[in-house]
Design a protein around this nucleic acid. Structure first.
Length: 802
DNA sequence: GTGTGATATCTTTTT
DNA sequence: GATATCACAC
């Protein structure tokens, strides 16, 4: 019977064999977590647990799919009937069935981040608030945090602490924005990502029948990456598991990297008190990486204060040291990575797919891509600008969305005048006002001529009517016409195709092809087997020969990310992705690039210990992706915002026990002189623009304002007195992690022995000797003794300070 | 109402 | 460098 468990080590096997009651598995990196989880599900199924009584929640579709595949391989197709998916997708499915009690139609729209932001921008504008005080991204993150903590707008407005925070941040109106934002979402029959959790909780909290139904259905619950759950997810799971208490959570506090979006490590620490009868297993043996990599990773994570102590160890070989390299620029870094991949492939007969390049931020992919292309190394980027985020795709999807749910305001606004049909800004503003007056959706105003009011002139009204008729006619077919057919109809009716055809450029041609790809995706969707849920039993069965409708497609893709589509024909490619996206994956050779201060750790995360510790865990995740070879690199100059910027090696590099590094000496500080030379090399002014000083400055300046000012002035010979302005608080903070740039040094002609000088930091002194034509001087200072200085960079004044 | 250029701001990380 | 917003001419 449980012979499948013999593939596992004792801890894994005990965890997998566990059937009833709460269970917590603390699984270190590379300890066979997914393996244990899949074996446990397989074991449950072998013990005659019905697959549709098992709920397995993951954070990514990829993780869910992988688990499904692995279970299928173990015990066959029965696995496909397990409820397995991301929190968001499973809850969306529940809400489509039962969300009507909350006032949502079955085909509610799911707003993506862009939709939410544009809605917030509109609200800020109409409330006459300053968009600079209320940037959409910040407001959204505040709202998102509130929703993740299950805080409604009303509770938000009443919460003294929260309001004080907003007031202190000089953004006192966020609560009001939140309230309006939620009303608008509802009026648009739309939910944002956080609503999927928030409303799921409402459903279980306020409707005992519904709670009972899902408790009956989900007799066995498994949660992957439990350390990444936020409060909403935690509470929902707790409610669902309350009846049977068959809950199994798997996690690793050392890999918690989503605190920024509300994940709470406490959830894992509180498991004990929530489920006093729990059992726990620790998986500490690493099967993935060499001793060197495991040791290096341990030395990193040990620097964190908040952690459950674990002893990750491995029986694997010692392996190579961790390779460290310093590059001149991000471009050079890319080339060095590409060349190494090329060499290793040749020498060790590895596949492209054995390599991954990991970075902190998506925009770092560019230099890597360029280099890989140069060497003809095929690669695939995960994440980043997704296919579904391209303009033309979003435009077509907006028509799809409108056809499914005309109340979808963001979709309506996107296409009401695209292609141009003479419905301009003024008209839209009037419609918005009307919608608000009548407390109805924008679509209600557009589609109901009697509601349009006197302000709309008859010409415009005709245009509006024509648009409304078009959308209505599309909406009619949505329930009866098969998805691909429907999609094609909408595409042709939208008029976008004709616009592209008319344009007749290469660009338009590309966009057309992208839309074709979208239509193909719809076609594929109609051909895949369909999961049908029996509402009585919760049983999931697979049906092949049934029509699939466009609304189903739309509800599917809203939660699909780039990593999920695009299952490339040729899988043998180098993987490029952010470290976040790499969680859960492993590669023979891993390159972690951009190991620089202000990039990794991010400049946004160096202010508090908790933030810094999350960055460190992120680094830990990056390092533990590697099986055999690990390369860490940093660039001394990075191209940011169209300019080269000085970079310092990341503090994390110094935290690795040097015994695991092949060349720790790379970390030794570069002299200011070399830095300045390399700065000059990479920031040659492209052309001199005469009187346009701004332009000259832009082409030679550094990004942080105080540095930029000081340096560009030194280059253009501005008086030093100008440089002594008091530093703002902001610039002090920056100064902490940014190397001091060369300042306007005094000219070497004025220097002679026994000259009195004054140094900003060292105070007064006397020049003892002048070397190398005045480039270097030795000064005997009154307080700190003898120092050798480079005149070019030392902030010296001749004589005594005034 | 539409379309064009200038310009300000920009960067975490994701479902 | 890339994108979102703004000012101005048509």
């Amino acid at each position: 019977m449980s012979n499948i468990l013999s593939d596992l080590n004792p801890e894994q096997s005990q965890a997998a064999a566990h059937i009833d009651g709460p269970l917590m598995i603390i699984a270190g990196a590379g300890s066979g977590k997914t393996r244990t989880l899949t074996y446990r599900i397989a074991n449950l199924l072998q013990h005659r647990v019905d697959p549709f009584n098992i709920l397995a929640l993951t954070f990514t579709n990829k993780a869910a799919r992988e688990m499904k595949d692995r279970i299928s391989n173990l015990i066959g197709t029965e696995a496909k009937s397990v409820w397995m998916g991301t929190f968001h997708s499973i809850f969306a499915r529940v809400l489509r069935v039962d969300g009507e009690v909350l006032g949502y139609p079955k085909d509610f729209t799911i707003y993506d981040t862009d939709d939410c932001k544009s809605l917030i921008r509109a609200i800020v504008k109409e409330q006459n608030l300053d968009p600079k005080t209320y940037p959409a991204s910040q407001v959204l993150s505040r709202i998102s945090n509130a929703k993740s903590s299950l805080m409604s707008p009303e509770e938000y407005l009443q919460n003294v602490e929260i309001r004080a925070q907003d007031a202190a941040a000089k953004k006192p109106m966020i609560g009001e924005i939140y309230k309006i934002y939620n009303e608008r979402l509802k009026r648009s029959s739309a939910m944002d990502f956080d609503d999927l959790l928030f409303n799921m909780n409402l459903l279980l909290r306020d409707f005992p029948d519904i709670l009972a139904k899902y408790q009956r259905r989900f007799k066995y619950i498994l949660v992957d990456e439990y350390q990444d759950t936020n409060y909403a997810q935690y509470l929902i799971v707790k409610k669902l598991a309350a009846a049977h208490q068959n809950i199994c959570v798997v996690g690793d506090d050392a890999q918690s990297i989503y605190a920024f979006r509300g994940a709470n490590i406490q959830n894992i620490l509180n498991f004990k008190s929530d489920y006093p009868t729990f059992q726990t297993f620790k998986l500490e043996q690493n099967y993935r990486s060499t001793k060197t990599i495991v040791g290096g990773a341990n030395s990193i994570i040990s620097k964190n204060r908040d952690q459950i102590r674990k002893e990750i160890w491995t029986e694997n070989i010692e392996g190579e040291k961790i390779h460290l390299s310093k590059c001149d620029t991000d471009k050079a870094e890319g080339l060095s990575v590409a060349q190494k991949i090329f060499e290793i492939k040749m020498n060790e007969h590895l596949q492209n797919s054995d390599f991954a390049v990991l970075y902190r931020t998506n925009n770092q992919s560019r230099s890597i891509e360029d280099a890989l292309r140069q060497l003809n190394i095929p690669y695939r980027i995960y994440g980043g600008q997704s296919f579904y985020q391209r303009k033309e795709i979003k435009d077509v999807l907006a028509y799809f969305r409108l056809a499914v749910n005309p109340n979808d305001q963001e979709a309506l606004l996107r296409v009401i005048n695209y292609p141009a049909r003479g419905i301009g800004q003024t008209t839209i503003e009037r419609l918005r006002v009307l919608a608000d007056q009548h407390q109805v959706s924008l679509w209600d105003i557009v589609s109901t001529p009697t509601l349009q009011g006197d302000e709309i002139n008859s010409g415009t009204r005709t245009k509006l009517d024509a648009f409304a008729v078009k959308i209505k006619s599309l909406n009619v077919g949505i329930k009866t016409t098969e998805a691909f057919e429907m999609a094609t109809q909408i595409w042709l009716a939208s008029g976008i195709k004709s616009a592209f055809d008319e344009e007749d450029t290469l660009e338009a041609e590309m966009r057309l092809r992208n839309v074709d790809e979208l239509l193909n995706a719809v076609k594929d969707f109609t051909l895949t087997e369909q999961q049908v849920v029996n509402e009585e039993t919760g049983e999931i069965s697979l049906v092949n020969n049934e029509f699939r409708m466009l609304d189903e497609f739309m509800s599917d893709i809203a939660l699909i990310t780039d990593a999920d589509i695009n299952q490339d024909d040729d899988k043998n490619k180098v993987s490029l992705m952010t470290i976040h996206a790499a969680k859960g994956l492993e590669f023979a050779c891993v390159f972690v690039v951009g190991m620089e201060e202000n990039l990794f750790p991010s400049s946004m995360s160096v202010n508090t210990r908790t933030e810094l510790e999350e960055e460190r865990r992120l680094f830990y995740v990056a390092v533990t992706r590697a099986e055999k070879k690990l390369f860490l690199s940093f660039a001394e100059n990075r191209f940011i915002w169209g300019q080269y910027t000085f970079c310092e090696p990341s503090r994390f590099l110094e935290e690795i026990d040097p015994m695991y590094l092949d060349n720790p000496e790379v970390l030794e500080k570069t002299s200011m002189f070399e830095r300045f030379e390399s700065y000059k090399t990479y920031n040659k002014p492209k052309q001199f623009l005469g009187s346009n000083l701004r332009k000259v400055e832009a082409s030679t300046s550094l990004p942080s304002t105080p540095l930029r000012e000081r340096l560009s002035r030194s280059l253009s010979g501005v008086e030093m007195t100008d440089l002594q302005k008091p530093k703002s608080l902001m610039s002090m903070a920056e100064a902490k992690y940014t190397p001091t740039p060369p300042s306007a040094g005094i000219s070497s002609e004025n220097l002679r022995e026994n000259q009195k000088v004054h140094h900003e930091k060292f105070g007064s002194g006397i020049i003892k000797s002048v070397e190398q034509n005045g480039e270097k001087i030795v000064v005997l200072f009154d307080t700190v003794g003898e120092k050798t200085l480079l005149t070019k960079f030392a902030k010296l004044q001749i004589g005594l300070p005034d």
